[in-house]
């Protein structure tokens, strides 16, 4: 067995275990912390695929911003950190069936794919980062989606400022 396969197996186990803990733990802050463990597992997978940039951005964006925002939303909005009440709702049987079906079809798809069983090829790091940067700004690659996403984010930013500003003026009056 290859060393990267062992690392992948252990990481996958960690991801599955922590993802299960996210939905089964009753303490909401613990759920957010387990989510961070899951996201770290995904970072390890990116690093195994030699996608350095994605691995680091995963930590900066998901752990550094989104997970911390989750923790704060929980702390500031809930009086009871501990979740009470049933953890399953009426549709759990259907949801379990659908997720199993999706998992089965994905497994079948990947098993029959031509790349199945092949190890990830070796890449040189500098080239992928350069290629990514150039692809994001070259007109015959991703410049349009990149710009559209930037404008969308800017609109969201201005919208957030506008919403916050309106509330402040109302409370002043």
């Amino acid at each position: 067995m290859d060393a990267s396969q062992i690392i992948f197996g252990l990481t996958a186990l960690l991801i599955i275990f922590s993802a299960l803990r996210v939905v089964t733990t009753r303490n909401m802050v613990h759920a957010a912390l387990w989510l961070i463990v899951t996201l770290f597992g995904v970072t390890v997978l990116y690093a195994l695929l030699q996608a350095n940039f994605l691995a680091v951005v995963q930590v900066v964006v998901y752990v550094g911003a989104i997970a911390i925002l989750f923790i704060f939303a929980i702390m500031l909005t809930r009086r009871e950190i501990r979740d009470s009440g049933p953890q399953l709702n009426r549709g759990w049987l259907l949801a379990a069936f659908i997720s199993l079906a999706v998992f089965g079809s994905l497994l079948a798809l990947l098993y029959n794919a031509p790349v199945a069983g092949r190890l990830a090829g070796s890449l040189t790091g500098e080239d992928t980062l350069m290629a990514l940067g150039q692809a994001l700004v070259s007109p015959d690659a991703y410049v349009l989606p990149f710009e559209v996403a930037s404008v969308l984010l800017l609109a969201a930013l201005i919208g957030a400022v506008y919403v916050a500003l309106n509330k402040k003026q109302e409370s002043d009056q």
């Binding site: 802050v29 930590v59 752990v63 550094g64 911390i68 923790i71 980062l129």
Partner: peptide, 25 residues
């Protein structure tokens, strides 16, 4: 010699923030 070292610096800082939140909570 990481080719994304500058971002790595920011990512490690995010972990420090997380530690402070965990301690505080």
């Amino acid at each position: 010699d990481l080719n994304v070292a500058v971002l790595y610096l920011v990512a490690a800082g995010a972990l420090g923030t997380l530690a402070v939140i965990m301690a505080g909570w």
